[in-house]
């Protein structure tokens, strides 16, 4: 390569860098989320124009893992995010850049959302209920994930030590599914629509549901600390739109009949086409129903539960001792949060 070519290459590189850095419009908000049914209120508010009603212009950025969503909000690339609450999230929140301002999905009695599953081999060998967990191996995504936490809480409730099960980090849900199908782990925890499909296909067995054992506040809506202090009005507008959409969602997906069984009426049928535009990979209406979690209609959090989660993670060495939940939960945007710890 001669010098002239080098100069041309360098100039081409500079031009690319210059073109790649667009200016961000001031009236826009950036919403970061996963393309899961649990992100539904965000999608409904966009589709029904609730953001526009509040004078907001939303832009979605979709991620394939929860961690980048939280990092995106912390770094200021995203204004709002919703994801499950993990040890990693709490450690990041503990550094002061994030504020939880409302609720997302909750594991609520009567609503199938996460299942305990046994591999066929382990099921035949006696892993037919959650009491039989000690001595078994359990596949999860990552250390400190919601799966890890749910397993820990189950151990506490059922009176065995978490150390009695072998936790195997597999990094991704597809890896977990492959491992339980082939019997390389005895068990996994799995979200409902996949769990039911696996069980229905005879690839693995559902042996219980988390909502029957340890209901908890699984997901949250959060924004950056900078937004809370500097753009409070915008955050309030966003919350208003989010709560309207959550109310719609509640009417469609959070319903139980008088026997305690879930029902989906016309309201659900009306919302499902909207959600199908956002949820990926391209779902069927049945999959949306199976994967729909309970989401509080007003964005109210089970606050004490979050304190308990942080305490559990700390006790297991997954969250730094310095992390203080009261510092990263802002209760001022939503009225009527549950179980607010007294000062």
């Amino acid at each position: 390569m001669n010098n002239k070519k080098l100069v041309v290459a360098a100039l081409a590189g500079l031009i690319c860098v210059a073109l790649a850095g667009p200016a961000r419009a001031a009236d826009k908000i950036v919403i970061c989320a996963l393309t899961f049914v649990s992100s539904s209120p965000l999608f409904i508010a966009a589709d029904k124009g609730y953001y526009a009603d509040e004078g907001l212009e939303p832009e979605f950025k979709f991620f394939r893992a929860a961690q980048p969503v939280a990092l995106g909000v912390a770094s200021g690339d995203c204004d709002f995010g919703v994801t499950g609450l993990t040890a990693g999230f709490y450690n990041l929140a503990g550094k002061g850049a994030l504020k939880i301002i409302g609720a997302q999905s909750r594991v609520e009695p009567g609503f199938d959302f996460v299942a305990y599953m046994a591999s066929n081999k382990a099921y035949d060998a006696g892993l037919t209920s959650v009491e039989a967990y000690p001595g078994k191996s359990v596949g999860m995504t990552q250390v400190g994930s919601t799966f890890h936490y749910m397993m820990g809480r189950l151990a506490e409730k059922r009176g065995f030590a978490l150390a009695d099960v072998t936790l195997k980090p597999m990094q991704s849900v597809p890896n977990m599914i492959a491992a339980v199908k082939s019997g390389q782990v005895d068990s996994i925890l799995m979200v409902a629509h996949i769990a039911k499909a696996l069980d229905g296909a005879g690839a693995a067995k559902i042996i219980g549901w988390v909502h029957q054992e340890t209901p908890w506040q699984l997901g949250a809506l959060f924004t950056s600390t900078w937004n809370v202090t500097e753009r409070r009005e915008m955050v309030e507008k966003f919350i208003a739109a989010y709560r309207r959409a959550a109310t719609d969602y509640h009417a469609a997906f959070n319903q139980l009949d008088k026997d305690g069984k879930r029902t989906f009426g016309e309201a659900a049928d009306a919302l499902i086409p909207i959600l199908m535009n956002y949820v990926g990979p391209k779902p069927t209406p049945a999959k949306i129903k199976a994967g729909a979690p309970f989401i509080d209609p007003d964005g109210r959090l089970r606050v004490q539960d979050i304190y308990d989660q942080v305490a559990w993670h700390k006790a297991n060495g997954l969250v730094d001792d310095s992390v203080d939940p009261s510092a990263f939960i802002d209760l001022s945007f939503v009225d009527g949060h549950y179980d607010v710890p007294g000062n």
């Binding site: 961690q67 040890a87 550094k95 990552q142 250390v143 072998t166 980090p169 597999m170 890896n175 969250v319």
Partner: peptide
Amino acid sequence: MIGAEFGIGSFILAAGNLM
């Protein structure tokens, strides 16, 4: 990445996941 309880690599991954 897969199923490792110990190891520098799994330690780095876990630390990354836990932020």
